[in-house]
Structures are given as structure tokens and as C-alpha cells.
Nucleic acid binder design. Structure first.
Lengths: 340, 340
DNA sequence: ACCGTGTGGGCGAACGTTCGCTCACAGTCG
DNA sequence: CGACTGTGAGCGAACGTTCGCCCACACGGT
């Protein structure tokens, strides 16, 4: 457990009887103007001594750390975790490590996280935290810093975005409910000040209007993305509009709270109230009843964000349009119908 | 978005009219043998130029990166996510950044992750991936490397551990079920080859024997920690021992699958089968019915691991005994009784 | 014998810091 | 008035690499 003294390339070179720069060439560099035997000797020495290249020193001269920064939210939200894990794995596949920072609840420490990342000279940043949407300072820091891809809008704009079409999501979910014959369709939405929420609400209203149903504000409940918040919002909604027969919920995590509130209120799902949600987190099918939901390609979002970021780092132009991945309705039982 | 050219301390020094070493002293060092006015001038210059210290260079000379490595499992398991997020936040509170690697399913890339961390010269490593328990190579690398704290046993031993008392967990859950009058108590366990599983199973048997009930192997089902695996295991158990009236499940994530399988089999919870699980992940109370579970202090585990790791890095002796945090039964509805 | 041309390897410089020593200068004391 | 002390700042070296230029040597052709 003793603090390991790392062996440097100089020691390797010494035991192989060459200059350390030559050793560097064969061990890490590509410009191999070295005879095969010398190279073999160096490699053998490195092997024997257990040489581990010091990427810190390398980064210093190359001015690039092969490290990405990832800002994630507090992450009791499984959906975000999914995207960020996928992002990390994708980055590693491309030889990059990932430095993470998880926002404290509220997201007030965003700027300090970004500064940490900058000081460590990450080559680029992925912002996977909805809370950042309200953080001006982070937006500025990120824009000033360097390549950044975000998974949600960042104040001030100008940062490339990878995500999904939220308006479609809201529309698809609502249309499905309409198709099943529902008319009093409520929605348990995320925080109104978030774009995701507003887009999904637009999709919801689009579908309603298209079916000739006038949206009713009383059927819209705001919640804070947590199961607890959603449960409370659902309870209030139920009291306000007991005639509601279907609910579009803005995330699977919130759907858990909704289901729980419905259960407590004695409303059966789907018989009493039909539920469609969004995300399709891995255990959505294990809820009771199995959740019908509009699948958002979370893992793919993470990967695509990394791909894009890496291209930007390589010098490719940044896209001017957000990259929106398609969503897809997954029908299970909570909506009460296999009508697709 | 252009690759930002960072301003170095030399530029700051130049505009302040001092040597860069002096600037270094006031900006980052502690040894301030500098007049107040000079210092002010330097700080002002740094401010104006937007100086961001380059920790890469600093790390090189100080031979310490103020960065920790975190190896996490694939992380659809909320419990692990909880611990690792808490660990990251604790690390940051102490001025350390965290480099993460998420194991691929199966955990075969553990060694490559560790190597990435070592090459980046992390000051210490936290292993928060149960899959590592079967990875010899990772054990060796970690032991050879430097300070490491693990949240589960690592092959070869010798690495300090922070966790909870799994045997207690199994005992407490089972005792509660016994106290409610159950006798045919089954268990949906994790993978048998994991220590956690064996310890919890021991606790389960302890409780049974203490109550004069002889453990029945047919009542023990193995699952792979996923909801899907647990659902399948439950189904099989139900067919094998339809007389079972209570189930101790080895994790809340698996409990979701268990609940789902029970629901499908038409067994009501808790009326038909009582369920107690372990972990108490944040949404355990939003399952249907709300889950009774033995709370494992996951976040605290992550924090304590970081505390310990930091102390080890500072040179404190490594503890010879695992640090086991106490667990606590949380009674909700799935067990069918408020008897404590 | 001379010049060119490869080939194999050495070597200085640079990356941006920290660390500790040196040094100039002014003030204080005997 | 000289020696000592303390203060403020400079400066060389080092951390472990990569990068590109330089050099020695051997070989082939004229």
C-alpha cells in the first residue's frame, strides 16, 4: 500500500542502454526510426520494470489531456445516470478518460465544478444536468472555455445540443391516450421553467387540439421530477379534476410517484386511470403495472454527445442545429391498451 | 468555441512586473514573502487576464494530482450509483476531482480501467463494483498501485473495506418476518459467488435457526441482482414452493422484479406474500406496495470510503478491519405489519 | 577519393508549475 | 560604524514527457 514510486522512462532507457528520448519514441511515440533489436530491448526493459507512462507529463507538452469533463445532476434520476454512464464508456472506447462532477441538489455548485474541470484542463465538457438550464454562470464559463456539448439547453445558447424531440414525445404519448378513447387527459409535468417541460407540454396540447379537445389548465400539474413531487402533484390534480381518466407523465421516475398516488387514492391503473410516461428506464417494465412509456434513447444520447464532442475537439465545425434523436412509444399495461 | 489558449502564470507575472515564481507564490503557494501591494498587483493581473492555474503542471512537480479514481459497476443499479455519487461529492468537498470508469456488463474491462487510472496518476482508487470481486487481475493491480478502498471484497484481500454488516441485514429482515408469524420464508438472493450474498444468507439462516425453523434449500433462489433476474427466480421459487408466505430479497432493485412476478402470479403483497428487502433506495417507498427494507447507508458508505482513502493518502495507517456501518429496518407496507 | 543519401539514435528545448536557495537592501543594535 | 537580522523578490532546477533537429556512420554510385 506504500505510495508507489513510479518508474520513469529514463530508468527504462538507462537499463536498455539508450537515451530516454529514444525510449520515448518506441514506447509511446509513433515516429519509430529505431532498429528492431533496440526497440525490442527497450520494450523488454519497460516490461520488466513495470513502466507506466505518465500521462500528466505527456499532457503538459501535448497540451491535451485525453480527458473529458462530465457534469451530471444529483442523479437519483436514473435517466440521467443512464446517459452519463453511456457517455463515459463511449469516451473510454475512444481513449479518453472522464472526470465527473455531480451537482448538489439545487445545482448551486455548477460553476465550481466547471472550474475544477477547467483547471484540470479537460479537452471538452459534456453537460448532462437539467439544473444547469438555470445557471447563467456555468453557461458563460462553458462558452468561454472550449468544446462543450450539452444534453439540455444551456442559458445563453450557442452550445451544441444532443437530445431527443420532446415535442414529439408529448404528442405521441397524448395521441396514444386519445386513440384509446380518453378525453379527460391530464399531465404531470416537470418544472415549468425547463424547456423539456414546455416542449412536452406543447406536444401534449398539439395532440389534444388535433383531436378537437381544448386543453384545460386545471389538468396540468407541475412537479419537480422526483417521485415524491409527482405523487403530491397527482394527489392535487385528482382532487381538482376527479374526472380525469388518463395521465401523461413527463418521466418514468415521476411515474413511480404517480402510480403510488393513484394506488393510494384507490384508482386502479389502467382501469381507473391510464398512464403513459416518458424515458423507458430499465425497470419501467417492472413497475406495477408495467409502464407504457415513450422511449427516449438515453444511452445513445450519451454516446452521440461524446462522438460529437470528440469531433469538435478534433477541429470539426460545430453543428448549428441540435441533434435530435427519435423517440418511440412502448406499449405495456399502464395505458390499458395495445392499440398502437 | 475556439480552443482556448490558456494564460499562464508567466503572462500574469509579466503584466504585474514580477518574476513568475513570485507570482506563483502569491497565486497558489502558501509561502507568501511578498509585500501586500505586490501581491495585490499580481492578483489584479491574474483576475484581469483570466488566469486559471494549470493543475497538470502542478501535479507534475508535486507528484500528486488531487484526483481520485472511481471504478463503478455498470450502474443500472441505483444503490451503487448512490454510493458513488456521494463519494464524488465528498471527494470534491476535500478538493479532489474524481475520474470514473464504469465496468462493462460482465466487468471484463476492469483491468483496462485501472490502468487508465494509474496512467493518469490518481492519488487513490475507490472500487465500487461488486463485479470486481471475481477479477483477480484488478486485485493485483490495485494492491500494487497505491491507496485503495473498496466497497466490496476484492480478490486476494489486503485492501481496506468500507461497507455494512450484511449478516445483520439478513438476520434483521428475516427476524422481522418471523416476528410477523411467518414460517415458510423464502429468499431471493444475489449471486451465490458474491460475499454479500453469502453473508446475507447466513444472517437469514441464523434467524431461522434461532426461531427453531430449519432452513430449506428449496426456499432459496439465486438471481443476478437485476429486476428481470429476480422476477424469473421468484417465478421458479413460487412453483417450487407455493406454500411460501414471505420473501427476503437481497436488494431493492431485485425487489421490483419480485413484486412484479408476485403480481403476475396473482399473489397479493403483503396479504399473500410478505416482502422485505435491503438497501432502501430513494424510491423504495414509491413501489406498490411501499417496500419494507433494511436500510443500508449507501451515501454514507461512499463518503466514509473517501474519508478513509484521503487519510491513507495522507499517510495514515490503513485499518486492518473492515469499517462496517450499521443497518436499520424500515417498515413500510410490503411486509404487512408495523411490528418492530 | 568525393559526394550524396539513408538509417539509427542522440540531444536540446519546451510544456507550466513548485521549491528552496540566493541576494540586495534597509533597519536595528551594540 | 560595522555586524547582524529580517524582508522582499529573483532565480535555477526539477517534474516526465514529446518534438524536431542534428549528427555519425555506412553504403552506393560516379
Amino acid at each position: 500500500m506504500a505510495q508507489r514510486r513510479y518508474v520513469s522512462i529514463k530508468e527504462v532507457a538507462a537499463t536498455a542502454g539508450v537515451s530516454f528520448q529514444t525510449a520515448s519514441k518506441v514506447l509511446n511515440g509513433g515516429d519509430v526510426r529505431v532498429s528492431a533489436e533496440t526497440a525490442a530491448r527497450i520494450v523488454a526493459a519497460a516490461e520488466r520494470l513495470g513502466y507506466q507512462p505518465n500521462t500528466i507529463a505527456r499532457s503538459l507538452v501535448q497540451r491535451s489531456t485525453a480527458t473529458l469533463g462530465l457534469i451530471a445532476s444529483d442523479a437519483t434520476d436514473v435517466a440521467i445516470t443512464l446517459a452519463s454512464v453511456a457517455a463515459e464508456q463511449a469516451a473510454r472506447r475512444h481513449g479518453h478518460a472522464v472526470l465527473v462532477g455531480h451537482l448538489a441538489p439545487g445545482g448551486g455548485d455548477g460553476a465550481s465544478i466547471v472550474r475544477t474541470l477547467i483547471e484540470r484542463r479537460v479537452d471538452g465538457v459534456i453537460a448532462a444536468a437539467p439544473d444547469l438550464e438555470e445557471n447563467e454562470e456555468v453557461g458563460e464559463l462553458l462558452r468561454a472555455h472550449g468544446p462543450t456539448v450539452s444534453l439540455q439547453s444551456i442559458p445563453g445558447g450557442g452550445l451544441p445540443l444532443v437530445g431527443s424531440n420532446h415535442r414529439d414525445t408529448g404528442r405521441i404519448a397524448t395521441e396514444h391516450l386519445i386513440g384509446l378513447g380518453h378525453e379527460a387527459i391530464g399531465t404531470v409535468a416537470g418544472l415549468f421553467r425547463r424547456r423539456v417541460t414546455r416542449s412536452r407540454l406543447h406536444g401534449y396540447e398539439d395532440a389534444l387540439r388535433q383531436a378537437g379537445i381544448e386543453p384545460d389548465e386545471g389538468l396540468v400539474a407541475e412537479a419537480d421530477w422526483t417521485p415524491a413531487g409527482a405523487a403530491a402533484a397527482t394527489k392535487a390534480l385528482l382532487e381538482r379534476r376527479p374526472e380525469v381518466t388518463a395521465l401523461f407523465v413527463h418521466s418514468d421516475m415521476m411515474a413511480m410517484g404517480v402510480l403510488s398516488a393513484l394506488y393510494e387514492a384507490g384508482r386502479r391503473v389502467p382501469a381507473g386511470v391510464a398512464v403513459v410516461s416518458c424515458d423507458d428506464i430499465p425497470f419501467a417494465q417492472f413497475l406495477a403495472p408495467p409502464l407504457s412509456t415513450v422511449r427516449v434513447p438515453l444511452a445513445e444520447t450519451g454516446q452521440r454527445a461524446v462522438d460529437l464532442l470528440l469531433r469538435m475537439i478534433a477541429g470539426d465545425p460545430v453543428p448549428d442545429k441540435p441533434l435530435l434523436l427519435p423517440v418511440e412509444l412502448i406499449v405495456r399495461e399502464s395505458c390499458g391498451g395495445r392499440v398502437t
